[in-house]
């Protein structure tokens, strides 16, 4: 464990807690893409298949349970909670996320470190996570402006993967034979996808005006 990875995990934890608290307290999910939340639930379900078979550390197991629990809770809130579901804008959240799942699965069948069930699904979860934010960013473009909490959620989500890139650089230089191109490339692509959002988020924060994304 290194400071970059720990900072990344805490930022990631903060992002899901910000979203869960927002939905739980104001009982609204306006501006949140259910498609992105469903993709994240799939990402965690396929990445943490080894949660009960390979014990790495209490921290690792605890965080996996938190990420699984929070992502499925958010999906449950947005789909089934009688009040929250009313604020879900399904007419705007129309990104065909199955068009993301199939290519990621096919790619994971081709590019992986070991062709086993668990390794292919783990690789699939990395590719899917890289593009999971797309429905949310498309929804933001459509609804034009976003409330602070959703903006913070996306900012933290992008920042966590940026921290992980520093973690991979650190591990590359400190651990011999630590070379994993698949998570590195997927993680870099993921962070780049947040690029324009970061740009507008930073400028709105600097000029202290409401975050408006260009059409």
């Amino acid at each position: 464990m290194n400071i970059f990875r720990f900072a990344g995990d805490m930022t990631h934890l903060a992002s899901v807690l910000v979203l869960l608290l927002k939905i739980h307290t104001i009982k609204s999910c306006a501006g949140v893409s259910l498609k992105t939340q469903e993709l994240y639930a799939i990402v965690f379900a396929t990445r943490y298949l080894d949660i009960f078979t390979d014990f790495i550390s209490l921290y690792n197991t605890f965080m996996k349970l938190v990420f699984l629990g929070s992502s499925f809770s958010i999906v449950w809130y947005m789909r089934s909670h009688k009040i929250v579901r009313r604020s879900y804008d399904k007419d705007q959240d129309t990104f065909r996320h199955y068009f993301l799942i199939v290519p990621c699965l096919l790619l994971a069948m081709i590019i992986n470190e070991k062709f086993t069930f668990r390794e292919v699904l783990w690789t699939f979860s990395l590719f899917l996570e890289a593009v999971a934010i797309l429905p949310q960013l498309v929804l933001l473009q459509r609804t034009r402006n976003i409330d602070n909490l959703t903006g913070q959620y996306i900012f933290l989500l992008g920042a966590y993967r940026a921290f992980y890139i520093f973690n991979w650089i650190y591990r590359y230089f400190t651990e011999p034979h630590y070379v994993h191109w698949i998570p590195w490339i997927a993680g870099l692509l993921q962070t780049l996808l947040y690029g324009d959002f970061f740009y507008y988020y930073f400028h709105s924060w600097k000029n202290n005006k409401k975050l408006q994304l260009p059409a």
């Binding site: 990875r5 995990d9 990631h12 080894d50 390979d54 790495i56 690792n60 965080m63 996996k64 990420f67 470190e113 070991k114 390794e119 783990w122 992980y164 973690n167 034979h177 630590y178 994993h180 998570p183």
Partner: peptide, 10 residues
């Protein structure tokens, strides 16, 4: 080992 395969990360 798990660490080798990079699976020790979240």
């Amino acid at each position: 080992t798990k660490a080798h395969l990079g699976h020790d990360e979240l």
